[in-house]
Design a protein around this nucleic acid. Sequence first.
DNA 1: ATAAAAATATGTTAAAAAACATACAAATGT
DNA 2: ACATTTGTATGTTTTTTAACATATTTTTAT
Lengths: 230, 230
Amino acid sequence: MNIECHNIIDNQMSVFSVLNQEEKELLKKNSTCTYYKKNDIIYKEGDKPSGLICLSKGKVKIFKEGVGGREQIVRMAKPVGFIGYRALFAEQNYLASAEAIEDCVICTIEKETLYKILSTNSELSFSIIRSLASELGFSNNRTVTLTQKHIRGRLAESLLFLKDTYGIEDDEATIKVYLSREDIANLSNMTTSNAIRTLSTFASEKIIALDGRKIKILDLKGLERISELG
Amino acid sequence: MNIECHNIIDNQMSVFSVLNQEEKELLKKNSTCTYYKKNDIIYKEGDKPSGLICLSKGKVKIFKEGVGGREQIVRMAKPVGFIGYRALFAEQNYLASAEAIEDCVICTIEKETLYKILSTNSELSFSIIRSLASELGFSNNRTVTLTQKHIRGRLAESLLFLKDTYGIEDDEATIKVYLSREDIANLSNMTTSNAIRTLSTFASEKIIALDGRKIKILDLKGLERISELG
DNA sequence: ATAAAAATATGTTAAAAAACATACAAATGT
DNA sequence: ACATTTGTATGTTTTTTAACATATTTTTAT
């Protein structure tokens, strides 16, 4: 029944493409498939990682609880991608929580098997090094933009980030992810009120169009300008 | 003349301790030693990494230029430690700049040699994976604290961070790094004025004592409390 | 030794964003 | 179908922090 796991491991786009057939078979034998409903918690801050979690279907938010329980989204995951691998490789407990924002299919690769393959396959190690290094660059960047940009700049950046991460619908304008205003706020380091207010302002300026949780980007250049100016 | 490089590579505390003698010799042959004066730029945002830079002596700040040229320090390096390895491993140009805050001795390991050893030594790859993963956790944490904590909390956290990173002098109280108020501000996401003001307030509350750039921690528990409360 | 520049200190004002309040709409459960 | 909860919207007040102004001290360069 873990056909979804097999698909990931065989996927040409995944980091596993550098493995030989034997290694792939070993991974498949030592991975399990799990299903999550929208709003389900996949893991919580403080939990111990049990394996490498691979997102096969659905979308996931990774967030930290900050001062007074205030939530900050540090990453948005999409298929095919890993979640929770930072803690696994740092040999730490999770420092953030993961929650499904859509129904999800997840494949968990057993830790020992992964390490066995890693110890013989330097290509896979390189891939992981590259991924971690890229994400660290992204995180350092976010630290600066979330602290230095003003509300409009932060929101504009978040909208562009969501568009780049999840792409757009067939209408060539609607961001392909449907977040609550609260999640948008938690992604952009602002209160829900300010997210709602600023989205409304953007809509009144014809930079975006709002229809419930649907966000349509009407003026991409304008949005980029707001994001850059801060 | 690159005896300092040799010392690093032979150092039992460095990640190179997992290498065999032959690998260590190869590294030594393909590394160069450079000296930097206080305030010298080691590399700039946008530069291309040429090798793995290892800090043998001195202290270095890693910072990014943000909105309107406003500086944010993302990391403080100490010996023996790497700098600029994120960009190297991500195969990107530097996303931050590095500047000596003391006279420094630096050892640069040639990229090709490093990769050759990495491809045969999975232990070294693991070390690098672990380091990057730890630092990513640290960075995500900073994103949250710098955005959510108030000025006093951010400054308290920075002082504790400096103490943990560089240790304390023989008096068991003075933080073993001497930064300008501007650097402290750039580390803590605040203006120089506010760093000076808040340091003065801490001093008047007998939490710290100030003597030029010397910062003495008088009430560690108090400082921790301020940092945690935000 | 002295001028110039840089760093530190502190008070005042202005801007940004959070907190708070309230209303309304939409989704959910019974 | 209705009540309850959750999410969205918007106006007002308060807090926080940046921006600005101006001394004073320290460092650096000549």
